[in-house]
Nucleic acid binder design. Structure first.
Length: 476
DNA sequence: TTTTGAGTTGTTCGA
DNA sequence: GTCGAACAACTCAAA
């Protein structure tokens, strides 16, 4: 008997409960479908590049047995199951509305043919319906969700070893070569952005181990403080691997805890970041329209500004605020952005420029390797203030102070804004305040080789505070 | 049942 | 320079 495992965002062999299930007492076939129906809002450019390399690596792990298709899963799968004479389909549970709908349709179609489809949880530490308040409704605030909800529930499973796979005989049945998925775009860009990453399950584990076993002032061992500094190497950089399932959250949870007391502060804070991912997925599960609609309905008619020139300058890293520009250029050049500066650029777009968070969500979706339906929407709603958040409306990041505080020697900023290479630290984050001779010696001509600030911090902050104060009071 | 206190990531102002 | 207070309104759970 043959079982078909449909890989989606679980591109790994180890700790993959659905794949384990498939491999028990059966020969296994494997498929990935680049879904082109409404089940998958199209992947962004960076995520496509990541996916290309991921599929290539996974196919190697499967000895060349991964079947690739492009199109509509409910058309492709029943036919493929027939060609393979497969009696069962396995897949890892997903949480976005269109995907959930596709999966239940598949199940019905196969059931009508006397075949089965198993949707098996594997990508979250806790399933959304497990973590609710006493009254059964979902949490809306992170801390009680995580501390009271998650940490009092069943602890995350010990990761499973990769199963011994008995490949079904290859019946390719019109499968496509990887190149036919056309996931790679422009030549220079896509080779440059992948050079720092080993895009594979193995690469994910190497990253995780390096993070977990780092020396005392690196990786997890100085996570609490170090994670705030974009020039330092304390964040895990696991997000793209988690996004595509090349490592599981369970593997990250347990590997990070090796040789550490469960009460260890560094470990606790890192795990709580995994908790934020859980929270985002819970929000997506209970609010299927989270990508487009604000969680707080009072934001529905908020008076966002319209300014395509400002938006373009934000996207290109030409705002005249060095920390913002460094971060936006990091994103565009590398497909990644450090978490601290994600908050700074988000606050700048939504508060200082007063542009709709949709614009930020869409740009991150296109540019980030780790663009994740749950995290991206939840994160943008959080920074916009319309999401699930206990934080005050007046939290507006100051791009000058944030730069001085979290990139004090300018290492990060100068790396991505080389125009300011020779600007002294004192004026690096506010070059418009620098005396003329300082600018001249640094070779900076504002408005010529580095932009003047596109808005003024104090005035734009006040404009945002006024606009937010005008919101209807009730969050509901 | 009601009250109380705290809540990822901040800034500014005035003492 | 440092430090505490003020900047709302609502969620959630413990007292």
């Amino acid at each position: 008997m043959t079982v078909l495992h449909w890989f989606r965002d679980d591109l790994r062999l180890s700790d993959n409960p659905a794949l384990n299930h498939a491999s028990q007492s059966a020969k296994t076939a494997y498929v990935y479908i680049l879904e082109e129906d409404e089940a998958a809002s199209a992947l962004g450019g960076a995520a496509q590049v990541w996916l290309h390399h991921s599929l290539s690596a996974l196919n190697q792990q499967l000895d060349g047995n991964l079947l690739l298709y492009k199109g509509c899963a409910i058309d492709i799968l029943p036919e493929l199951m027939g060609a393979l004479d497969a009696k069962m389909l396995t897949m890892t549970r997903r949480y976005h509305q269109a995907g959930v709908k596709t999966d239940s349709e598949i199940r019905e179609i196969l059931a009508a043919q006397g075949k089965s489809a198993s949707v098996i949880s594997g990508n979250l530490l806790w399933e959304p319906e497990e973590i609710t308040k006493q009254d059964g409704t979902p949490y809306k605030v992170f801390t009680p969700f995580y501390r009271r909800g998650c940490l009092n529930a069943q602890p995350p499973r010990i990761p499973l070893a990769a199963p011994a796979l008995d490949h079904a005989p290859i019946i390719s049945h019109n499968a496509l070569p990887l190149e036919a998925l056309r996931l790679l775009g422009g030549a220079d860009w896509q080779t440059n952005i992948t050079k720092d990453w080993n895009i594979s399950e193995k690469g994910g584990h190497a990253r995780l181990q390096a993070f977990a076993a780092a020396s005392s002032n690196d990786g997890i061992n100085d996570y609490v403080d170090g994670r705030n500094f974009p020039a330092r190497t304390n964040v895990s950089r696991l997000s793209p691997y988690l996004r595509f399932g090349q490592i599981s959250a369970h593997q990250a949870w347990h590997e990070a805890g090796k040789n550490k007391s469960p009460e260890d502060k560094q470990l606790d804070i890192f795990r709580s970041e995994l908790g934020w991912r859980e929270f985002s997925y819970s929000l997506l599960h209970f609010n299927p329209d989270m990508k487009t609609n604000p969680l707080q309905k009072r934001f529905a008619s908020f008076g966002w500004a319209e300014d395509s020139e400002h938006l373009k300058r934000w996207q290109r890293g030409q705002t005249g605020y060095p920390i913002v520009d460094a971060a936006m250029r990091e994103l565009y050049q590398t497909g990644y952005m450090h978490n601290r500066v994600r908050m700074i650029v988000g606050s700048f777009l939504v508060k200082n420029l007063l542009l709709h968070w949709h614009h930020g969500e869409a740009w991150f979706w296109d540019c980030l390797f780790d663009a994740d339906r749950a995290n991206n929407s939840a994160g943008w709603q959080w920074i916009a203030g319309c999401g699930a958040d206990a934080a005050p409306y007046f939290r507006v990041f100051n791009p000058v102070t944030q730069g001085q505080k979290f990139d004090p020697d300018g290492t990060y900023t100068r790396r991505f804004v080389p125009e300011l290479q020779d600007m002294p630290n004192k004026f690096l984050f506010n070059p418009w305040d620098a005396p003329k001779d300082v600018l001249r010696r640094a070779g900076v001509q504002l408005g010529q080789n580095y932009p003047q600030p596109i808005v003024e911090v104090k005035a734009s902050r006040q404009r945002a505070l006024d606009a937010f104060a005008d919101l209807p009071k009730s969050k509901i």
